[in-house]
């Protein structure tokens, strides 16, 4: 009887921990979604180099005027709303959309 009572207490405590953890995860995942944004790469004539997560057309190498955006999902850089709104339409689809400026 004593063992049964102890087991019930342990299960209740475990369930409470699961509830807390899942609740905390749910809270942080909402924050996370707002942070998702792409990485930008500029072409320097030889290779694509990481520009950063803040879009700025001046960072794209002039001459070739080509930037690549690599979409995201697995990292959390940020981009401002105004910068995102000024992005032109990309060529290509999916994860490796390409922007020509």
């Amino acid at each position: 009887m004593k063992n049964l009572s102890l087991n019930i207490k342990k299960i209740a405590l475990s369930l409470m921990v699961v509830g807390l953890v899942v609740g905390f995860s749910a809270f942080t995942s909402v924050e996370k979604q707002t942070k998702l944004a792409p990485f930008y790469y500029g072409f320097n004539g030889v290779e694509y180099q990481l520009i950063g997560s803040d879009y700025d057309p001046n960072n794209c190498i002039s001459g070739t005027e080509r930037c690549v955006v690599e979409s995201p999902d697995d990292t959390n850089p940020t981009i401002s709303v105004s910068a995102a709104a000024s992005l032109p339409s990309p060529t290509g689809n999916g994860h490796n959309k390409q922007y020509d400026f």
Partner: peptide
Amino acid sequence: LLCLALFASAAYQKLADHEI
């Protein structure tokens, strides 16, 4: 409990952001 918390949060996150 620690192991349980780790896997519970990991499983939740993987299902909530399943596509990612």
